[in-house]
Every structure is written in structure tokens, then in C-alpha cells.
């Protein structure tokens, strides 16, 4: 009896723990320095670095660097996201004006360039990430 109660508690806690895992989280080891933040804004179906005018700009990052990419949607009524297909990372789709999502990831060690895009508007909202 006692053993069975303990088992039930363990199963229950495990189930809760599994259910409580946030969706799509990238688990980052503790103790790392704070990631570098890049703020991207979508306006008129175009990516901009927050505060800059260059449309769909090239983003420069360092190999192995930890990045916290914050995407803000300024296009009312349109759904946008930010995805890097080759690294299999992306924000969730932002539907409302002013909505934000953050993406934390570690840049792969391979140098070179890789494209980023908005999934629903990949033909006009796309740019390049340069890994240095």
C-alpha cells in the first residue's frame, strides 16, 4: 500500500513536470553570461532592426554566441514570425500589433551566411545572417 502510494506520487509528479515544460523552449545551461539582445521590428511587411531604416538587414553574429532575439509585430492584422530554417529556430507567429516574442539560441560554430525569413511572407521578408 505504502509503496503504491509512493509510486502514484512519483508518476503524478513526473506527469505534471512533463506537462509543465514550456513549449519550444531552448534549454540553456545555467551559469552562462546573459545573451546578447537583438531587437527586430516588422513594419509594412519588412524586417527592421529596431530604430534603424535598413529593410531586411543583414544580421551579424559571432560563432558560439548566445543571442536573445526579440521580434515585435507592428503590422496590424498580419501574422509574422522570424525563422532561421537551417538552425531550426523560430519565434511563434505574432498576430497582433505590438505583440512580441523572444527567441534564445546559441549561434552554431560554423562560420558563413544563412538566410532568415518570415514563414508566411518568405518571398519578401527575408535576409541574411552572417556568422563571424
Amino acid at each position: 500500500m505504502k509503496g503504491s502510494i509512493v509510486r502514484i506520487v512519483l508518476i503524478g509528479v513526473a506527469a505534471l513536470g512533463a506537462a509543465a515544460l514550456p513549449r519550444g523552449a531552448v534549454i540553456v545551461p545555467a551559469g552562462d553570461p546573459a545573451p546578447r539582445e537583438i531587437r527586430i521590428v516588422v513594419k509594412d511587411m519588412t524586417f527592421y532592426v529596431d530604430g534603424q531604416d535598413m529593410p531586411n538587414p543583414m544580421l551579424r553574429v559571432k560563432a558560439g554566441e548566445r543571442i536573445r532575439l526579440v521580434l515585435r509585430n507592428e503590422d496590424a492584422g498580419m501574422t509574422h514570425d522570424f525563422a532561421v530554417a537551417s538552425w531550426k529556430v523560430g519565434t511563434r507567429a505574432l498576430m497582433d500589433k505590438g505583440e512580441e516574442d523572444a527567441l534564445v539560441f546559441r549561434v552554431p560554430y560554423q562560420r558563413g551566411t544563412t538566410p532568415y525569413h518570415c514563414t508566411p511572407h518568405s518571398e519578401m521578408m527575408r535576409g541574411t545572417i552572417q556568422v563571424e
Binding site: 511587411m45 496590424a76 492584422g77 498580419m78 501574422t79 508566411p120 511572407h121 519578401m124
Partner: peptide
């Protein structure tokens, strides 16, 4: 000219 889905008021 670009066709896009958009929610309009």
C-alpha cells in the same frame, strides 16, 4: 503587387 492575407477593420 503582392497578395497577402490580412485582417482589416
Amino acid at each position: 503587387i503582392i497578395a497577402v492575407d490580412r485582417e482589416i477593420e
